[in-house]
Each structure stands twice: as C-alpha cells, then as structure tokens.
Nucleic acid binder design. Structure first.
Lengths: 322, 322
DNA sequence: CTGAAAGCGCTAACAC
DNA sequence: GTGTTAGCGCTTTCAG
C-alpha cells in the first residue's frame, strides 16, 4: 500500500498524491480524486520513507530515570502539553537510573531520527556527546550535565534545601537530619548542601555528619535511612528529605517508631503523591515538575526551530508550602 | 555519516560494512577494520533506512490512558521487562483517556512501523481496525475491546468486585457502597457488577442504586463520590472503590468527615501507592499490574514472532490482601 | 568471502 | 498544475 497504489487508483501521478497529502497546491479535482482513493484504500503514509527522504520526524524523545516516580510522570505531562501544542508527539523511555539503558535509548533516539531529546540524566556523567556531535537538539531537565555544554532546566535546589532546613529550625527543632539521594546525582548534592548551610549556622558543624544519610531516591532507601537515624543514640527531631519517594519511606519508618509530623519535623522535596490527607504538618518544598517539563519542551522546540544561540540554563524557583 | 563513509575509511564495500553490523559471516580481518572505522567515526546506523528496506523495527508501542496513574506505570514496567529481554525497546504514549489522542498514537505506531502495539484502551469503542487491517500485532491489556477480535490480557474483575464486597459484608458491614469508574469502561462495569451481585445477596436490591456512584477513575472523582455518599440520609458504612486513584480521593473525603478504616470498611482495586503506612485496615484487591504487562508483552512477542492462531484472552487472577 | 546493483516509499528539483 | 527523475541510507540478491 503505497502512494503509487493511490495514484493508480486515482489516475494521477505519485507526486500529485504526495502533494495532496502534504497540503501543496493542486487542482480541486485532483485533490478530490486523491482523497477518495486514499480513503478507499485505507492508506496511511509511511513515515519511515518520508523521514528517510529528509524530513525531521515530529517526535520528541523524553528519557527519564524512573517511570514509577510521580515526579517524572508529572514532568512528562508538562513536556507533552507543550509538545503537542506544537504538533509534536512525545515518546517516553525509562532508564531505571541505569546509564547503560540511558545510552541505549540515546542511540535509539539518534537512529530513529527523533527531532530532539529531553533527558533527565540518570547520572552526573550521562554521556550526551553523540547527541551533541550530531548537532541534535538536547535539553537536560531536573539535573544538569557536568561535562556537556547543553541547555538545561533545573530548580534552585540549594536554596530549597536551605529554606527547608531553616524553616524547621525556626519551628523550634534542634537536631535536623538530612536524607538525600545518591552522591553521584546533582540534585542530591545540592539539596544536601543547602541543608548543611542552614544546619551549620544553627547548630555548629559538629553533629552534621551523624545526621546525614545518602540513600537511593526510592521508598525503601528512605525508610531504611530514617530507621537508622532513629536508632542513633541521639536521634534527630526533624529531617529534610530530598525527594518524594524517600519521604514516603521515611514516613513509614517514623510511623513504625510511633512518631509522625508535626511532632517530628519533616520537610520534603517534591509533592507527596496520593497522600494529601496524610500530609498534615509536613513542609513541602514544591518542585514544579510540570513546569520543568514545559520549560524544557519550550527550550527544545526553540532549538528544533533552528535557534543556535549558546547553551542556556533555566532555573525555576521552588516554593515552600505547609 | 553513512555506511559508505565507514566503508571508504575501512577500504571495503558498503556491503561488507552492512554485514559486519548485522553479524553476518565476514573475514576476521574485514570485521576488525570495519569495527575500527565505525568506532573512529562514531557511526550510528540509520534505523530509518534500515527499516525502509524491510526490517521490522525492534520497537513496541505501549499506549496507556493515564501516565500519572501508578497502575499503568507498573504495567509499563512489566511490558518493558519482558520486551527488553527479547531485544525490543518500548516507547510509551499517553492518551489521557482521549479517544482522539489514542487514535493519533495508533496512526503513529502504524506509520512508524513499530513491531507491535500494546493498548490499554481508553474506551470500549477504541478503534484498532486499522491495526488489524494492516495485520499488525496488537494486544489489548487491562480492558478488552468490544468490537474487535484481538488478543487481550485482563483480570477477573467481576470476581474481584464480588469478593471485595463479600469480605466487607463478612466483616459485619451492612451498607456497602460502590464507587466505580466511567460506565463506558469495561473494568468499571465488571467491578461494579461483582459488587452488585454480593450486595443483592446480602441486603436485597432495594438500596443498591443509592449506594452506587460512577466517577472518573481519578483522585478528585473518588473524593467527590465519597463525599456525596457520606452526605446521604443513610450513609454507607463501607465501600468498594474500583481503582487506586479514586481510593486516595475517597480516603481524603473520609478523613475530612472524621472517618477512616477500619471503622469505615474500605476495599480497593489496585495497590495504594506510597501510602502503605496509611493502608492499615484497608482491603486491597491486588491487580497484578506488572504481571499484566508481562503477559501482554509475551503474547505480543509471540505474534510478532509469527504466531497466527486465533485471538486469545488471558485472564489473570486478582488476590485479596488485607 | 566480497562487491555491484537494485530497490524499500517518499519528496524535491526540474521539466513540461 | 502535473509528471519524470533522482536519490535519502540501508540490505539483499546475484555474480565474481
């Protein structure tokens, strides 16, 4: 089923069919005949061939590290909204925080000639060099890339971490712990750094290291880290938790120990999904996931549109909510 | 950057390069030279061209109605596991329960020549006729298709709904309500039908309609439906809720009214994500999302592999957990 | 074991 | 306004 079949049936040339399908100028009569023939034959143009001929595909690849994390699905929603408005489709690829899978998907995006890629890097060292080498539009989102000069959209993680900790100290807590993500992940480092600044100011640096835990940005990691903290000779009375999933785990650990906010101070990065009724007393540093996605898509669409200016970094503001 | 560039650099023909890249028999020397040249040039074969030449692409399209629903992301995880093991990549498309967007993505899958499609239909009337007409492998998952003879993987929704209601009656509750999904969605109908059977047996059909609410499978819908039920002159003392998101909303409404499980009986279809500490006293009808995805992928891979037997429907068992 | 040549389905020059 | 022709990058007969 090709345009030649349609052409034969309509009694015109393949070119004319192509023109009709692409909205170029044709006589009304031709247009009518071609459309009729195409409809009768259930014809669907072959994008593969079209693309091979040189058209960029109207598909954007979005590569995320954890599809089961609502933060990233909200981000995906943002990308989708913006992309769809511009006539692009979005395909999602899940890397499971695995640099090798990430690399595979980057290759696919390249080989499939997607119009551009939005990448929430699994790791500091994510390698987008192939993308850059092929001059394919890329935008990093949520985390920026250490070794590459590409557009990025992030939030002010350090400031968020600092204000989260500050607000706990201001509320009267004195031993404010921190549960952050893997040390190879930028957001984890920055959020922790913010906490460290505030903690050093309010309590001196002496107890800091005791109350800092690196976990894995997952529910179980958060639970375990909080359990460890609570088992300390001098346990914390509050904590800053660096992402939503770990916070869910931390809440479970608290609950198991008979504790809960607001008695135990808790400040969390990112929304706590599907638990708003259990969120009372928790300070949430709202990370605007959807807006991150929208901003990243906007940036990418600019690049796809031909913008070749120097790399830009957009930093969105976090908002603290009670 | 084409195989001709690589061929030139390696001093062989494009054919030989192609052979090396596809693992055909070549002299060790040729192989070495070609690989070296490809590496130096950072060569990535163009899948578009490869596919045009006739190879099926090793990509499976997974079309889901709500990417922010953890049930579907878990399902996606299952599909991915199985597909990756077989060397296929998975791209996710989100329809937002919108038949038109679903249709667009089906067209894309078709036009992009994806190897097959797994569809969690937005609607009873989802139109897969084009897929079927083109003999492209399709598997429906979670919900089956009313008007099409295609493979499907579902769970025993009616039995699950019945046993959920039964266990609430057995626990001593007497006015067991039901909050189900849109009436155009099969799972919503069946889960409700199961509840109706049990309820009719235990309480007579008289009060049934009062205690039945159709909502939209989203958090807000669940909250609102539960609020309405609680405002009834004779409110229910328990409820079967037909999906995870609505259950989260229903819990909020209960909480606002000063109620909570286990005092108010609650049985829910699907896991309650990130809230296991708040899950005490809730009966969960476990819908094995990941297994659904795995089974669907297995079925699809069979079809891609050439299985042309009659359409099969696989029904997985739900498990009730406390 | 390797290469030359013929397309896959489409679109973009370039005639008519 | 419409058709002819020449590829896009790759794989695959078919000879050598």
């Amino acid at each position: 089923m090709t345009i030649y079949d349609v052409a034969a049936r309509a009694g015109v040339s393949a070119t004319t069919v192509s023109r009709v399908l692409n909205g170029a100028k044709v006589s009304p009569e031709s247009e009518r005949v071609v459309r009729a023939a195409a409809a009768e034959l259930d014809f669907i143009p072959n994008r593969t061939a079209r693309r091979l001929r040189g058209q960029g595909s109207a598909v954007i690849g979005l590569i995320i590290p954890d599809i089961e994390n609502p933060f990233f699905t909200a981000l995906a929603r943002g990308v989708e909204n913006r992309a769809r408005a511009a006539g692009y489709s979005v395909v999602l690829c899940n890397t499971d925080e695995d640099p090798e899978r990430e690399s595979t998907y980057i290759d696919i995006a390249l080989a499939e000639h997607m119009a551009g890629v939005i990448l929430a890097p699994a790791d500091d060292a994510s390698d987008v060099s192939r993308l850059v080498a092929q001059r394919r539009p890329v935008v990093a989102v949520d985390r920026s890339l250490a070794h590459a000069d590409v557009d990025a959209v992030t939030v002010d993680n350090r400031a968020g971490g600092r204000s989260a900790a500050e607000s706990l100290f201001a509320a009267g807590f004195t031993r404010v712990a921190c549960i952050t993500g893997p040390s190879s992940v930028e957001t984890a480092q920055l959020r922790m750094a913010g906490w460290r600044q505030a903690a050093a100011r309010h309590a001196g640096p002496d107890y800091l290291e005791d109350l800092l835990r690196y976990a894995d940005y997952r529910v179980d990691g958060g639970r375990q880290a909080m359990a460890e903290l609570l088992a300390l000779p001098e346990p914390p009375d509050a904590a800053v938790v660096a992402n939503n999933l770990m916070a869910a785990g931390a809440l479970e650990a608290l609950h198991d120990a008979g504790l809960a906010p607001p008695g135990f101070g808790l400040a969390v990065f990112g929304d706590l999904p599907f638990a708003s009724f259990g969120r009372r007393g928790i300070r949430v540093v709202d990370v605007p996931a959807r807006e991150l996605g929208e901003a990243a898509a906007a940036l990418l669409l600019d690049r796809i549109g031909g913008d070749t200016g120097p790399a830009r970094t957009v930093v969105l503001r976090t908002r603290e909510q009670k």
